[in-house]
Amino acid sequence: MQRITTRYSSSPRHVDGATTDELRSQFLIESLFAEGEFRGSYIHDDRMLVAGAVPGDDDLVPSGFEVLGTESLLEHREAGIINLGGPGSVVVDGTAHDLDNFDTIYVGRGSEIAVRGKGARFYLVSALAHTTYPTRVILRSEVEPVVISDDRGAGARRLYRVIWGGGEPTCQLQMGFTVLEPHSVWNTLPPHLHPRRTEVYLYTDVPADARVMHFMGEPSNTRHLVVADGEAVIAPAWSIHMGAGTAPYSFVWAMAGENTDYGDTSGVPVTELR
């Protein structure tokens, strides 16, 4: 089964006077993961597509994308796929690539994909591509994390960059994940903007009785979303993004847009938030 929704571009004015339901409808992607289904959202900001794919007993093969105007998902696109569940495989052009928890595969434009492995939980992010780069597997065990210490606050974390401008080439996709240290709650502090890119946060490993308070909006006009496990938040170029959890959690970050310069950000001091 396959289901793709559409999220149209938004402006800062979308948050002025918006109700909680209106904010969630515009910026929060819910119910991405269901066994035997490929569920996603096509985001008009930078033409990103994010999806959850949970295979059952049989291979799950995404095909027929009316929203893209193509039969194949990656006819004009590249993708990063990360496994957030038990062991599974991503099949690319007939070749199976095994992925354990937090292992990632980059798939170049023009490939056909399927996923398999009951108990696996795949999260896919796709962006438009102007050329084809080779498929490659990035194992968590082979990635040296960026260790971010925070002796003063509660934001110590390990940041894993798996698809990014400092590694193997991509057209525009960047992707990675961040794991918070014990007793830390903040995932990105201070917050920042990406004036030339769109970013999506997918929260994972959030206990069923916990939530993440995700902050968004312009620095001078902030709002928040209450986010559960397996839910994603769209951060347009004009919106900050940061969050604090009520229990330990991790999140997957992904970007697409003007460039693949990981450092192309605009920091926002906490003292400027309103």
Rank of each mutant, 00 (worst) to 15 (best):
M1E: 14
M1W: 07
R7M: 08
S9R: 13
R13K: 04
H14L: 12
V15G: 00
A18K: 12
E22G: 01
S25V: 08
L28V: 02
E30N: 09
S31F: 02
G36L: 06
G36S: 13
I43C: 03
I43D: 00
I43R: 00
D46K: 06
L49Y: 09
G52Q: 14
A53Y: 14
V54F: 11
V54L: 07
P55H: 02
P55M: 09
D59G: 01
L60D: 01
P62A: 06
S63I: 08
T70K: 14
T70R: 02
E71S: 11
E78K: 02
A79P: 01
G80T: 01
G80Q: 11
G86R: 08
P87L: 03
P87W: 14
P87Y: 10
S89I: 08
V90G: 00
V91I: 15
D93K: 05
G94I: 10
A96G: 02
H97K: 07
L99W: 00
D103I: 04
V107K: 00
G110F: 15
R116T: 10
K118C: 09
G119M: 05
L128C: 07
H130A: 10
P134Q: 15
R136V: 09
R136E: 13
R136G: 01
R136I: 04
R140D: 11
E142L: 03
E142C: 05
V147K: 06
I148H: 13
D150V: 07
R152H: 13
R158Q: 12
R158I: 02
Y160T: 02
I163K: 00
W164T: 09
P169K: 07
T170V: 07
Q172C: 05
M175T: 12
F177T: 07
L180T: 08
E181H: 06
L189Y: 09
P190T: 10
P190M: 06
P191N: 05
P195T: 04
Y203G: 01
Y203I: 03
T204F: 15
A210P: 05
V212H: 01
N221T: 03
N221S: 11
V226S: 14
A228M: 11
G230S: 04
G230Q: 05
A237L: 07
S239D: 04
S239K: 04
G243Q: 13
A244G: 14
T246A: 05
F251M: 11
V252S: 02
V252P: 00
A254Q: 07
M255I: 09
G257Y: 05
E258N: 09
N259W: 15
D264M: 07
S266R: 12
S266W: 14
V268I: 14
R274V: 05
